[in-house]
Design a protein around this nucleic acid. Structure first.
Lengths: 190, 190
DNA sequence: TGAAATACTTAACATAGGTTAACGGAATTA
DNA sequence: TAATTCCGTTAACCTATGTTAAGTATTTCA
């Protein structure tokens, strides 16, 4: 577990085994069962979670009761509602598990303490958010300019591992389509 | 100019007049005329630009030749293509001026030097990107769940100042609509 | 000042995707 | 194992938005 985590961090900042050692103590491992909520709408998001094993979805429920998936999470990804986490306000998002899931969690206070003790970790999180922002911008462009069919093709190409693990109707939700439309697209009856 | 800039930074991190003084030297003021490009597709984005005065748009041109506006920029906003800026690869975006525009620009190298000299500025940029990411996620949700009419209403409510300064067909592009559709929506003939 | 480009509108028509409803198979649970 | 829920599919029909095409007003600029 910690090994995977160290490897993950090392992709962004260099951190020797020895420097990594103290980092561990700021994180708490936690397991969730399939269908269990990691975050529920209305609650404050108290953790950033690194997925060691499993699969999650982060989604919003519109006033009309429709779910819209903002993000899937699998091994090596971070999940959480950053706005709620930082501002301490109630989240409008739900995060639940598509599979049994193991995470490493850190709280806001612990994160501040971590930054003070291991400055490289502040840099690490900055890079992480930078990348997330870049990916997010790119998704906006895709949503603005491509048809459902193209977005689905892009999704499969970009996230083949996720495609295999989550039901189609959730992929539809991520792409901004109804399950019926995605089915139509998949069968090439477009 | 510097006063506005200092005020802007102070909204995110505390920086006395004296601490702010050295910050100035890392930025270069620059003026652009209306319609002038700040960044052109295919070029590497060499600067992050803080808008002191003016109005810009950041957009992508799809293979079919259609423009899609990713972001508008007005006073107090930052513009640039972060991915290109950080990775040094060619940008797929254009940034041009809707009005004569004055900016303060910093290069990647100068930014690194600035972080080394004034650590609070690293924190400042981290917060900036965090906020940008949060806004970006929120835009994705809106695009997934709301109709054109609703997105337009949201836009006006959220950016009344921009609405007044940019032509409608560019707002349409930002919202993922054709100018004709926006016109139809505006006239309530929906 | 006049010509050209730009901005916005309207209308007729086309279409991708939404809606509703139904069916059958797979997975979950009692 | 039986009952139930979940999942993907199909089909008929509907609607928001795109497309094409014009027309007018405004702005830009030579």
């Amino acid at each position: 577990m910690w090994d995977l985590f160290h490897k993950h961090i090392s992709r962004y900042v260099s951190l020797t085994e020895k420097e990594f050692e103290p980092v561990k103590s700021f994180f708490v491992p936690r397991r969730y069962k399939k269908k269990q909520f990691i975050l529920q709408e209305g609650d404050v998001c108290r953790h950033e979670s690194f997925i060691v094993k499993g699969c999650t979805r982060t989604y919003d429920i519109s006033p009309e009761g429709q779910e819209h998936i903002l993000q899937f999470g699998i091994e090596d990804w971070w999940i959480g509602d950053l706005y709620s986490y930082l501002s301490g306000t109630a989240s409008r998002c739900n995060i639940d598990c598509i599979e049994d899931t193991e995470v490493l969690q850190i709280t806001r206070e612990q994160q501040e303490a971590l930054f003070a003790e291991v400055p490289a970790m502040e840099r690490f999180f900055r890079i992480l958010i930078q990348n997330a922002f870049i990916a997010s911008q790119s998704r906006i462009l895709t949503n603005l300019s491509r048809s459902g069919k193209e977005r689905y093709a892009d999704f499969i190409a970009q996230y083949p591992l996720i495609d295999q693990r989550v039901p189609d109707h959730q992929i539809a939700s991520y792409l901004g389509l109804t399950p019926q439309s995605l089915s139509r697209i998949r069968s090439r009856r477009v």
